[in-house]
Design a protein around this nucleic acid. Structure first.
Length: 370
DNA sequence: GAAGCGTGGCG
DNA sequence: TCGCCAAGCTT
């Protein structure tokens, strides 16, 4: 049975009543200075309120207006940003201050184009400045607002989806039609921060409880739905099982990053238009200084990672003189070595490499001919 | 469109 | 303890 779609105007009244009674006292809510609003919004990008409050007070004390920020030294600006992270935000803010002096007579512009042209100001921050500082009917859709509206409207499309964003804008415009855009923006974000929480929403006492479609359908914890993952991309890669007739060659991955410290066969991804055999020769030369001539294709296997499906071309490469591999000067700082199948079995390897081991290397006695 | 950019809080 | 993630933007 179809539930009525939430009415923006009615919801807005309840939301604003709730906000009037429950809003936190935050320093940037005590001002309507567009510069101060901008500073707070940039600081709040991906950063928690508790972290921002003291930094905001410090910053406004040190750079109380656009001219003072514009003429400050870079060291000073970075120092004032200390602890907030994403330091390019600080430098962008100063560049923005200089642009505002140069092109807008020292006053923050209100138009989309001018705001979006400021470094560090994107769709969200522009809308936040427009609605919070200028009380213009523009949406400020951040992660909080997305969550609130995905639940209120019980959207089955991911929050970032165009269709979702269009619904958000329409609903927010409806709420702003007869209410202060400033209040609507602030209240939506505050609701997301205090009540409509990601994991433990406090639906009792939510001003939207009677309207919220997700609440009525029991789907609150399923909204927003996770973004649709990109279909796994197909990748071609090549591995070489180097053998001196008794042992195989393995190298250790770097100590940081993906599959850190695991042991793997030499090889790599195929380049554009490259054949597997050619890719193997290139990789062996680049990584180990080997000029291989007689690779024997032993098989192909497919392996799925989170984001791609790899087709692995596996070759056996016979090496005359194991002592020359890797060539001096290659593989600097990356452990590598020759191992019998028995020894290799004891080393940690990524799953795809382990598959190669079990399919083409293991099962042979350690002294058997490979 | 994905990856990179920092930090602190939380389960 | 540690992975996840929070008022995004840029390249």
């Amino acid at each position: 049975m179809a539930l009525p779609a939430p009415d923006p105007a009615r919801g807005a009244r309840r939301l604003l009543d709730w906000f009037a009674a429950n809003a936190r006292e935050l320093p940037w809510r005590r001002t309507r200075d567009p510069y101060a609003i901008l500073v707070s919004e940039v600081m709040l990008q991906q950063t928690r309120v508790d972290t921002v409050v003291p930094a905001f007070l410090r910053w406004m004390d040190r750079f109380p207006d656009i001219p003072s920020l514009a003429k400050a030294g870079q060291e000073e600006v970075l120092k004032a940003w200390e602890g907030l992270g994403y330091y390019s935000r600080a430098l962008n803010l100063q560049r923005a201050a200089r642009l505002i002096l140069e092109h807008h007579g020292g006053q923050l512009p209100r138009e989309d184009e001018s705001l979006l042209a400021l470094p560090g100001v994107g769709r969200y921050t522009a809308g936040a400045v427009q609605s919070l500082a200028f009380d213009l009917p523009r949406e400020a859709i951040d992660g909080n607002v997305e969550r609130v509206l995905c639940r209120l409207l019980d959207l089955e499309t991911p929050a970032k989806d165009r269709r979702s964003q269009a619904r958000f804008r329409k609903h927010i415009r409806g709420m702003m039609a007869e209410n202060s855009p400033r209040s609507v923006s602030e209240a939506l974000m505050e609701l997301g921060a205090l009540v409509c929480l990601p994991r433990n929403p406090r639906c009792n006492g939510c001003p939207f409880e009677g309207d919220c479609l997700a609440r009525q359908r029991g789907t609150v914890l399923d909204r927003p739905v996770p973004g649709k993952r990109m279909p796994a991309r197909a990748i071609q890669a090549v591995f070489g099982i180097l053998t001196d007739g008794r042992r195989i060659f393995l190298q250790k991955r770097p100590p940081e990053g993906l599959m850190a410290n695991l042991w793997e066969f030499p090889g790599g991804k195929l380049e554009e238009g490259e054949s597997p055999r050619k890719a193997l020769r290139r990789e062996l030369f680049e990584e180990l200084g080997i000029r291989s001539r007689e690779e024997e294709k032993v098989g192909t296997l497919r392996h799925s990672y989170t984001r791609f499906i790899v087709t692995l071309h596996v070759f056996l490469v016979r090496v005359e003189d194991a002592s020359g591999v890797p060539a001096p000067g290659k593989m600097t700082g990356r452990p590598s070595g020759w191992f019998t199948p028995l020894e290799a079995r004891g080393l940690p390897m990524p799953a795809a490499n382990a598959k190669i081991m079990s399919r083409w290397v293991e099962g042979l006695e350690s002294d058997a001919e490979i």
